[in-house]
């Protein structure tokens, strides 16, 4: 298995390389630059700045320099927040995003699987209809609607929780709820469908035919099969949740990394944009790997190869 993980990481390097390359040139070929301010800078200062950031060199040289730095874990200085390096920015922002996303993901997983399994076991009863109905809501309504509505209702109108900001646990409730809700819905729906399918499967029929108590039939035979699609879903989702959400962080004013990309792109902060791309790609790669290992552990038909 160790060899498998190593192989997968080796396989991820070219993917990462492609991503970095495309992103790098796409950003650079776009019009505008980080120093195009409303009031043009003094040409001399401009020249100095360009030299300092290697902009006077040909693009391919800059690319090679960037790759070299990247290999050493250096993502370069931020152009829009001059006092910080990109690594610094992630060092402060990432823990916030991971904290929010991690809690939201855990809640979504527990609640979603529970609700989905419950609905499947009580298929076509009011419990089932409730879960399916709520799930449809959660899947359909986008985050950028839920977030401001939560903030408006619980924060502004009811005043129960802070409408935005960061610091105490109360500040985390609404963002986590916003992040978790759609995931609960999706996971519940996935689990429900998979559980129903598993309950209809021949091997569950066998378990029932052999008089195994229902906690064994459901808990041991049906749910393990039903959890497999959820595990597959979890990889990209975990990566997305842990790297922060632009919408949630914007609306609730949270100092996470979700906003970096859009801010960086708008401000032509090349290094920040590249840094975000690299960090997110790494998360995606790692979580896909984690999920594959987990999946193979749950399903003996899948082998490491």
């Amino acid at each position: 298995m160790f060899a498998y993980v190593l192989r997968r990481f080796a396989g991820a390097v070219p993917t990462l390389f492609i991503i970095v390359t495309i992103a790098f040139f796409m950003i650079r070929l776009a019009p505008g630059g980080p120093f195009d301010l409303e009031r043009p800078l003094d040409p001399l200062i401009m020249k100095n700045l360009e030299r300092a950031y290697n902009f006077d060199k040909p693009l391919w040289q800059q690319y090679l320099i960037y790759l070299g730095n990247l290999a050493q874990g250096d993502l370069g200085p931020s152009f829009t927040r001059r006092d910080f390096s990109v690594v610094d920015l992630f060092r402060t922002g990432l823990p916030v995003s991971i904290q929010l996303g991690g809690i939201a993901l855990s809640i979504a997983l527990v609640v979603g699987v529970f609700l989905g399994a419950l609905a499947a076991l009580r298929q076509n009863t009011w419990v089932d209809y409730m879960v399916v109905g709520t799930a449809t809501f959660g899947i359909t309504i986008p985050t950028f609607v839920i977030a401001p509505v939560f903030s408006l209702f619980f924060g502004v109108m009811m005043g129960w929780l802070p409408a935005g900001g960061w610091g105490t646990w109360q500040h985390m409730v609404l963002p986590i709820a916003t992040l978790a809700l759609p995931q609960i819905a999706i996971i519940a729906r996935l689990t429900r469908g998979a559980t129903i399918e598993a309950l209809r499967s021949n091997h569950v029929r066998t378990a029932r035919a052999y008089g195994l108590p229902s906690y064994v039939v459901v808990g041991v035979h049906a749910l393990r099969a039903a959890i497999l699609p959820v595990v597959s879903y979890l990889g990209p989702t975990a990566a997305a949740l842990l790297t922060g959400s632009v919408v949630v962080e914007t609306i609730f004013g949270i100092p996470g990394i979700g906003r970096y990309f859009v801010q960086g792109a708008l401000g032509r902060d090349y290094t920040l944009v590249m840094g975000t791309v690299v960090v997110i790609a790494c998360f995606v790669i790692v979580f896909n790997l984690v999920v594959d290992v987990l999946y193979a552990w749950l399903d003996p038909r899948v082998r490491y190869d």
Binding site: H203, V204, R205, R208, G211, P300
Partner: peptide
């Protein structure tokens, strides 16, 4: 009774056993 006094085998040997155990 089932699995103790009366037992059963099925048509589909490929799917009647739980693939995960």
């Amino acid at each position: 009774i089932r699995g103790e006094k009366i037992t059963m085998i099925f048509q589909e040997p490929m799917t009647s056993l739980d693939p995960l155990y």
